[in-house]
Write a protein that binds this DNA or RNA. Structure first.
Length: 292
DNA sequence: GCGTCCAGGTCTACC
DNA sequence: GGTAGACCTGGACGC
């Protein structure tokens, strides 16, 4: 039994470019069906709720695997889907900056630039930690282990992303032996404990009034979060000042803009300076054009 | 089958 | 503030 919900989309919204914006759609509890072009997710709540999201005729359709829902749950699902697809982001200034750039004209044409995110900053933070210093396959493996071993099951047998409380209830050793997180294990244990006991609330980063430099400093106070991780998180809360340079972006930049030769990060930063506070989104779109 | 390298980096110690 | 070395894991690669 499913319940259908509908969301209106802004005119400059493109479901596929949002879903394919980066690797998040490959990380549980997201699951992407590229044949039917729909995205599944399992939302946390009193009881986890599994949904299938797709687009038809300029509207987002949400099939919820629940026979009955109270109004509060329905409103939360609608709010969360708006959040993960970034339906309320205003990218008009970014499109204005990029539409006359040869390599970036596609962004405004395809209504790109909306980076898929999780319903909570906590989930994005944990997933970002899973991307550091490892292959993408290991990132997927760690996230899968977190969901399958610590996530709560929904009615249809899928699992939600673990809450901070669930993650705080297991030991550092659990992260090593079961999640296969290696040296990141103490980072996960410490982070979960801080969030669960109220000493850290990453959700406040969404509408923080701190200048980006200060907010980045706060993010980096989390063990395991360095420049790349903090700048990636900043992009996910809507601030694109930092490039979030990692080995992928560097190697792509060398290929596309430096004849395959390595160069200093300062040269990359200088290259995107003209995009101002949008530079982090500009480099990401520049390096991922072929995905679209 | 085995060893080495390195991937969507960060931390700590040291200068 | 800048740099060297250590750090888990697992897939790719060469032999």
């Amino acid at each position: 039994m499913t319940t259908k919900l509908i969301l209106e989309t802004p005119p400059d919204f493109n479901f596929k470019t949002a879903v394919y914006s980066h690797g998040w759609s490959q990380l549980l509890p997201f699951e992407l069906d590229t044949e039917n072009w729909c995205l599944s997710y399992v939302f946390n709540g009193e009881k986890p709720v599994s949904v299938i999201i797709d687009e038809n005729g300029g509207k987002i359709k949400i099939d919820v695997s629940a026979a009955q829902m109270d109004q509060k749950t329905e409103e939360k699902i609608l709010r969360d889907v708006r959040h993960i697809l970034r339906l309320d982001d205003d990218l008009s200034e970014f499109y204005h900056l990029t539409k006359n750039e040869k390599r970036l004209a596609w962004v405004a044409e395809l209504n790109g630039g909306r980076l898929l995110r999780s319903p909570t900053v906590f989930e994005d933070l944990v997933k970002t930690l899973c991307t550091t210093n490892c292959s993408w396959s290991l990132t997927k493996s760690m996230v899968r282990n977190l969901v399958e071993k610590l996530g709560t099951e929904s009615a249809d047998g899928k699992r939600a992303f673990p809450t901070a409380e669930a993650m705080a209830n297991v030991s550092e050793e659990f992260y090593r032996s079961e999640i296969r997180a290696g040296y990141r294990s103490p980072y996960f244990a410490q982070l979960a404990a801080k969030v669960a006991n109220g000493n850290l609330n990453p959700e406040t980063w969404l509408d923080s009034e701190l200048p980006t430099k200060e907010l980045k400093k706060e993010m980096k106070s989390v063990k395991g979060v360095g420049d790349y991780a903090a700048e990636n998180l900043l992009k996910l809360v809507g601030r694109y000042d930092g490039l979030a340079l990692d080995s992928f972006l560097r190697s792509e930049f060398y290929k596309r803009h430096n004849a395959g030769n390595e160069c200093d990060d300062k040269q990359i930063i200088s290259f995107y300076e003209k995009f101002g506070t949008w530079r982090g989104l500009a480099i990401w779109c520049d390096m991922t054009e072929k995905w679209h």
